[in-house]
């Protein structure tokens, strides 16, 4: 279930990049000088950061790391 939600989140954010609703307008100017389309895309970058945090927190491929550490230990190599 957790994985399905993360996949939906990734697809949804990808779709939200195509913000056709702010395509033809600069208004409102956020802080009095940032066009809304640019502000939206800036917020999109912050949302991407949050999504990456979710992926790292809930879908980190820890088994790969464990496999490497296990094989290093077996071979007596420092890691």
């Amino acid at each position: 279930m957790k994985r399905i939600l993360l996949v939906i989140a990734v697809v949804a954010l990808y779709a939200l990049h195509q913000d056709i609703w702010f395509w033809r307008t600069a208004h409102p100017l956020v802080f009095g000088f940032v066009p809304i389309g640019l502000f939206y895309q800036g917020c999109f970058s912050i949302a991407a950061c949050l999504l990456m945090w979710l992926l790292v927190a809930f879908a980190w491929p820890a088994h790969l790391e464990e496999e490497i550490e296990h094989s290093d230990t077996e071979e007596g190599r420092p890691h």
Binding site: Q41, F44, S45, A48
Partner: peptide, 14 residues
């Protein structure tokens, strides 16, 4: 114009 950020930066950020 401002499209540059959405074209090249925010898409790369994802």
């Amino acid at each position: 114009g401002i499209v540059t950020f959405g074209l090249m930066a925010s898409s790369s950020g994802l």
